[in-house]
Design a binder for these strands. Structure first.
Lengths: 240, 240
DNA sequence: CCAAAAGTGTTACACGTACACCCATGA
DNA sequence: TCATGGGTGTACGTGTAACACTTTTGG
């Protein structure tokens, strides 16, 4: 598809002295479990940077979209499709990779720890690390993680993306614990509950989760349809 | 710097079958004048897309940062350095450019219409267009403009970037008119004034601007120092 | 019966929003 | 003197933030 254009008049002139470079994508993959935000990283088994910790990424191929490359990587390592993933920003400093010139598009993803393929992850040497106990990562990957955390913090407040980190069915205390991990501060139980429920996008189920208390807490589901309808009418979700 | 690495062991293996592609940057350049947001675009004089309207952009060179390329382009066409510019997002679909595979990083810039180099702009065939009377642009540039507008709208509310579009000295009515253009809705004079001044980041000057009324309106300056101090202490700017 | 987490209401205050009139000036 | 845009204050309702006790149940 691209090669055949080489012969065209004009185009060839235009492009011929331009520089080509590698384009990569790196995934900042978040999970949440027992009160902690987690990040999926792996120890590189080949050069360059063999033995060092790194985000999971890939070069973008000529025939694939940048976002497609990120989805491919994510599926290869977790077995998951249709995961929440969004562009973070690009990393394009000329000297960011001492090997070759490479521009990387950072993408952050939110994963349910209950759903991914554990064997696949292990095969790739990938490990979930608590977000506040990360080792040094290669290149500018530390910066990417920092940037992704800030974006998550800012975005989770006004858009219901936090639910992507919880199981389909979750309790209000779990949800609160998640937001406390994202915001890095404690929240008032009563106000949190009030605020969350006032958004009218949670469906209360008849089941209870007894895994963390004797009394048990009611399970809820996020109501995607209701959320869509409400946003159409110019409603604003918020959890603070 | 990059060529010399070709000979290294391992690295060569690693990179050799990867695809290289063009990386470009396109600038969404905003201005503001007499109540209207404006965009700087130009009519292409060479193939490809000769004669069509386009954002101003450039391929990124091997030795320059992506942000450096955007700055270079902006200076080449407006003569301005140190302009507010920020990454919008990347545009990386495999088929976005029918000529060759090219990933573009969109960057939006905010310019003071009082300061740029008019001759330089003319030389390049660039023209300021009202944002709501734009012609069709090449490739996915229409989408870029849409995205940039949304980002501007979202960002101007919580960060004092609007001032980048006004002269150093401006009046409150001018500022209000700017925000009305960004938000696409009318604002209440009294509430706007109250809100803006309550942020404590405007310095009232002793001069008046009489260009738009007989009585004249007091001029203000944005107080960068005060803003920095306040943000350090966890203060939140907001104009709504 | 006790420990541990779930669940519930009220009050004070700040903030956003709606709203109408006088002021200053040049022509 | 009048037309034009600049500048000001108040009242009301909404939303936020602070705060403590009762309920449930398994061990």
């Amino acid at each position: 598809m691209y090669e055949e254009k080489v012969g065209e008049e004009g185009l060839q002139d235009f492009y011929q002295e331009k520089d080509k470079m590698y384009v990569a994508t790196d995934c900042i993959i978040f999970g949440f479990d027992s009160g902690n935000l987690k990040l999926l990283i792996f120890k590189r088994r080949v050069e360059p940077f063999k033995g060092e910790w790194s985000l999971i990424g890939s070069f973008v191929k000529l025939q694939e979209d940048v976002s497609g490359a990120a989805k491919r990587v994510l599926e290869e390592i977790t077995g998951l499709k249709n995961v929440f993933m969004e562009e973070l920003k690009s990393y394009g400093n000329a000297n960011r990779d001492p090997g070759y010139r490479c521009v990387s598009i950072g993408q952050y993803a939110l994963i349910r720890l209950s759903e991914y393929d554990k064997e696949l992850v292990e095969e790739h040497g990938a490990v979930w690390h608590d977000i506040d106990e990360l080792p040094k990562l290669v290149l500018d990957h530390d910066q990417m993680v920092q940037d992704a955390l800030e974006k998550l913090k800012a975005k989770a407040r006004f858009q219901p993306i936090g639910f992507e980190l919880l199981p389909e069915k979750f309790t209000i205390p779990q949800l609160q614990s998640l937001y406390e991990a994202i915001y890095q501060k404690e929240l008032d139980t009563r106000n949190f509950r009030k605020k969350v429920l006032s958004n009218n996008v949670l469906i209360k189920l008849d089941e209870k989760d007894k895994s963390s208390s004797k009394r048990g807490a009611f399970l809820y589901k996020f109501d995607h349809d209701s959320y869509k309808n409400l946003t159409k009418r110019g409603y604003d979700f918020e959890i603070s």
